[in-house]
Design a protein around this nucleic acid. Structure first.
Length: 547
RNA sequence: GCGCCCGUAGCUCAACCGGAUAGAGCAACUGCCUUCUAAGCAGUAGGUUUCAGGUUCGAGUCCUGACGGGCGUACCA
């Protein structure tokens, strides 16, 4: 519809002015906030006021005089306010589109903006040092949902989890298990400096005890067996947690591969060749001052250990070399500072860094017992995602993380999510879907199955028209959410559909109505239920048939 | 100090690329179940969009500067 309006406006535009085509401002069609302003509006007359040196309303008048609208599509065109041109859609067009929604079914809302693109979404990527916490939840849910949105835009998606099982963190983790293991055997042992205090460490030690008795007691704390046991147990838990949240990874990428393949050394060498890396003070540096940073950045510490930036660069280079059209990273605001280094690193290797894009989300503030709660994996001060899902389920968990803009700090009130039961906004959507399903079941009993020749033009109640129009907003909401990587936009649109449905439910009945009308309304509700189900599906949330 | 994000109703947050009278939920108050699920609907109240300038037909949105909050700014990840 929008492209139709743009094309007839362009025609009319050509007739009223002799401006060269390149000077025309882009014709924007938007949906007015206030429904009394019609179904679509354009501000083109206002944009032309300056170049044409005419008052906007005058321009709008002459534009409309030349506008050839198809009465089957547009029922009225009006000038309003400072110079908006408002269009109202013809009812017949609405009915045709509604039919199209029903025909599209579970594909309704799919677009082709990313058709044929191969996209890698990397998210979660928590190192296996402990269970996933509520803090990781936003990353996990956001990443998965953005992936789903891109799938709905036609992209071919791969979900990847990047992790590092070497390094200091993991060493301390293994030593922590070792200490707990000795304690279980009744021996004196202390957690290492900065050790992991969580209960799960003892559980892992107990498993080792069950399998090996005391035969490991002479092993040094750094022995791989402790670390490996921890990694395996923790990863198993992480996978389970993700699965519970409806998240399924396609691949797990171990940072270690980058060392084994020589990719790390390769990066350093190439940077040296490009005169962007040098040795000083026992360390190897990346000349980030070349790119406008205040200081150069250490790539390899004087201990010989790389900083995380080096494998990050190698990893992103690896992703691009694997041939994706887009590599999307999901990370928290605390990692934003490293992003330019990675981009500059990748560029310096002669790769196309424009294929990398990033979704940054702001921190989650956990509110527990009415107070902000500081979490630390190491100190075992955390609420795990599993605990949260035990309380509220995965639907509520996902919804909470998605309902706010990624740019916005998210306050996650545990108590509120727990008691959320009836008040929880996710139920508003699910309830609408369940309510429709219930009606459809009863309508099928009373009137039999839908027939193809349903007379949709019987739908002319205000509540019906509003509902139809809201359903039409869905594909746009999906594509906008995908483009901006902001799932909350989709939630807003779904909320409006649900609200319009609940209003319809109140105003219009089906059972007891004359058959033709009942059938028409049943068709409408099928379209609404389908739309809600599609939308909830993108959010990874169940669309229940009964509640 | 510098960089990024944020500041909107009592609270948590929306507002599509700069559009028309800034919207929801929660909390408060008033109505609506003999009738397809009241996990709902309708209504009342609640705002100088932190402040001061600027840009223009038009600013919550863009620019500058204050103020307030978060996160960075490591040879930690």
């Amino acid at each position: 519809m929008n492209s139709y309006l743009v094309s007839i406006l362009q025609d009319a535009l050509g007739k009223i002015s002799d401006l060269p085509k390149s000077e025309f401002p882009e014709i924007q069609i938007e949906k007015p906030r206030d429904p009394s302003h019609g179904d679509a509006a354009t501000n083109i007359a206002m944009l032309l006021a300056r170049p044409l040196k005419m008052p906007p309303r005058k321009i709008a008048e002459s534009l409309i005089a030349k506008l050839k609208t198809d009465p089957e599509k547009v029922s009225s065109v009006e000038i309003a306010g400072p110079g908006f041109i408002n269009f109202r859609f013809a009812d017949n067009w609405l009915y045709q589109q509604l039919k199209a929604v029903l025909d599209a079914g579970e594909n309704y809302g799919k677009g082709d903006a990313q058709q044929g693109k191969k996209v890698l979404v990397e998210f979660v990527s928590a190192n296996p040092t402990g269970p996933l916490t509520v803090g990781h939840g936003r990353n996990a849910v956001l990443g998965d949902t953005v992936a789903r949105l891109l799938e709905w835009s036609g992209a071919e998606i791969e979900r990847e989890y990047y992790f590092n099982n070497a390094g200091r963190q993991m060493r301390v983790l293994g030593m922590s298990v070792h200490a707990r293991y000795l304690q279980l055997l009744g021996k004196e042992a202390e957690l290492p400096e900065g050790g992991y205090e969580g209960e799960y460490i003892t559980d892992i030690a107990r498993t080792l005890q069950d399998e090996h008795g005391d035969s490991l007691s002479e092993k040094p704390a750094e022995d791989d067996i402790f670390k490996k046991a921890a990694e395996q147990a923790i990863f198993a838990e992480i996978r389970k947690t993700l699965e519970r949240m409806n998240i399924s990874m396609d691949s797990f990428f171990n940072e270690n591969e980058l060392y084994e393949s020589g990719a790390i050394e390769d990066v350093v060498q190439k940077l040296r060749d490009a005169d962007l890396a040098y040795d000083a003070e026992g360390a190897t540096w990346f000349k980030t001052t070349t790119f406008g940073k205040e200081k150069d950045t250490v790539l390899i510490k004087s201990t010989g250990e790389p900083t995380y930036r080096l494998p990050d660069i190698a990893y992103h280079a690896n992703k691009i070399e694997r041939g994706y059209d887009l590599c999307l990273d999901i990370f928290g605001a605390d990692h934003i500072a490293t992003y330019p280094d990675v981009i500059n690193g990748v560029k310096s290797l002669g790769l196309d860094a424009s294929k990398i894009d990033v979704v940054v989300y702001q921190f989650v503030t956990i509110v527990k017992d009415g107070k902000p709660f500081k979490m630390s994996t190491r100190k075992a001060n955390f609420v795990t995602l599993d605990e949260l899902m035990d309380e509220v389920g995965s639907d509520v968990t996902r919804f909470f993380f998605l309902m706010r803009s990624p740019d916005s700090h998210l306050e996650f009130d545990i108590a509120e999510a727990k008691e959320a039961g009836e008040k929880n906004p996710v139920f508003y959507l699910q309830y609408a879907h369940a309510r429709i399903c219930s009606i459809l079941r009863k309508a099928a009993e009373e009137y039999g199955e839908l027939e193809d020749d349903t007379n949709l033009s019987l739908l002319n109640h205000d509540a019906e028209i509003r509902l139809i129009k809201n359903v039409f907003d869905f594909p746009g909401a999906v594509s906008q959410s995908a483009v901006h990587r902001e799932p909350h936009r989709l939630i807003t649109a779904l909320n409006e559909i649900a609200a319009s449905f609940h209003k319809f439910y109140h105003d219009c009945s089906i059972l007891g109505e004359e058959r033709d009308l009942a059938m028409a309304r049943t068709s409408l509700l099928k379209a609404v239920a389908q739309t809600l189900a599609n939308g909830l599906g993108i959010l990874g949330i169940d669309a229940p048939e009964r509640m």
